[in-house]
Design a protein around this nucleic acid. Structure first.
Lengths: 233, 233
DNA sequence: TAAACCAATCTGGTTAACCAATTTTTTATT
DNA sequence: AATAAAAAATTGGTTAACCAGATTGGTTTA
């Protein structure tokens, strides 16, 4: 067989092709939750792709909870049912790359929640972590240095304090994408950094005082600039 | 070298170990954004693990946007900066498995947003997809069959119509976990299924009419039972 | 001096052979 | 005939050799 190196996009296309093939196979064979898929070797032969590509596609479907691999046993359809599996696979295949607007919209949604929850649930050690992150941010700002990272890390510290591991996970997923777009579009303006620092300090204070409403309002104010920018694209 | 098969948990531990090693390496060598990591072969030798394990750990960090692999070239630290990378890696390593309460809380947060956005932005083809999902749900309910999957698929159809690919992605991530917990804790009650159908129809109607406030309120009502359950655990 | 070229080397990706746990089938025993 | 024990086949995971594109350093050339 000819060996071919794929670009990142071709790679994704290949994965989607394999995923679609697996979906069709499950439908044709009427596999139900808990049923076993054909082995990786058979799938790779059947779809005429390498076994490692099949493994990668299966890994992706495992991430979305649709399949489960058991060592030395097989790959199984998860307990989510055939209909749900079909719908979700189609959804996954239709998933496009996130645009900046979608990222910002999601970030604001998540953070207005995390800040409220953090104000309610923060422990003393949470406070310490947040304070440390805030201090690091402060130092950079006062030295008039770029502080995008420290900015975001303070927000991640809030997410960590919100006591919801799922929301925290989602903040982790979007943060690097946010950072990249920040730098790409030069969202952050150094002239405003003093103001931003003040806002961060206000947020921290509200969380410390466990004033949920104030915390949310401070975060909202903090996002106003971003909002504006987002709707101007 | 001795070959050893790992359980799922040991596997995760190994990944975390490698991730921690990579973090320490980046710190020790003071690698900055865009810098190249040592090759996979060198890392595997240095950490005394297999190259495929290194590749899997790198893949995970790629998913979180911390590293970028370029074919035939190398693996690079993403443009998020050293400080952010450190903080995020620590966060990732500290990430625990989601509990049901965290899942439900997140689901409600996301869906109260998706339903509002869907009411505002839904296209005609979105409406058709949602109507189809709703019909499938209706058939199951009227036949008094289990309809958890069709239920969730309707919600996913709403997410798809919300015009925000990031939120849609997150709904896809949590849905299988939600389904599993639904079935584990028997959250769904068949006696209430008629009521649930009515609620779904109300939501659909509100989205069709593009009445955002009503759509959100209907969704809120729909979640009341879940709320109760969630806070009773 | 600097630009262009070329070959040696290094890289992530791919493949195929191999491993050990598991599952299935066969055989042996009661 | 039923059960237990053993062997064969199957599985996902692992390893190591290999591939082709990218990089690099030195050499040649304008």
């Amino acid at each position: 067989m000819k060996l071919e190196i794929l670009t990142r996009n071709e790679h994704k296309e290949l994965h989607n092709l394999i995923i679609a093939n697996i979906r069709d196979l499950i439908n044709r064979k009427n596999l139900e939750p808990g049923d076993k898929l054909p082995s990786e070797r058979m799938l790779s032969e059947r779809f005429e792709v390498s076994r490692s590509n099949v493994r990668e596609a299966i890994q992706k479907l495992e991430f979305y909870g649709i399949l489960k691999s058991k060592p030395q046993s097989g790959t199984f359809v998860a307990d989510i049912g055939q209909v749900a599996m079909n719908g979700m696979m189609n959804d996954i295949l239709a998933l496009e790359d996130p645009d900046f607007k979608s990222l910002v919209e999601t970030r604001i949604l998540l953070e207005l929640k995390t800040v409220k929850l953090a104000a309610k649930r923060r422990t003393d050690s949470d406070l310490e972590r947040m304070k440390a992150a805030l201090e690091a941010y402060k130092v950079k700002v006062l030295n008039n240095e770029d502080a995008v990272q420290e900015d975001l890390l303070f927000h991640l510290a809030i997410a960590q304090a919100c006591g919801n591991s799922t929301i925290n996970r989602m903040m982790l997923i979007i943060t690097p994408e946010i950072i990249n777009n920040f730098e790409k579009y030069h969202v952050c303006d150094k002239n405003q950094s003093q103001k931003r620092l003040k806002e961060h300090q206000d947020i921290f204070k509200a969380i410390k005082e466990q004033n949920t409403q104030k915390a949310k309002q401070m975060m909202k104010d903090h996002f106003v600039e971003l909002y504006k920018y987002c709707y101007n694209i």
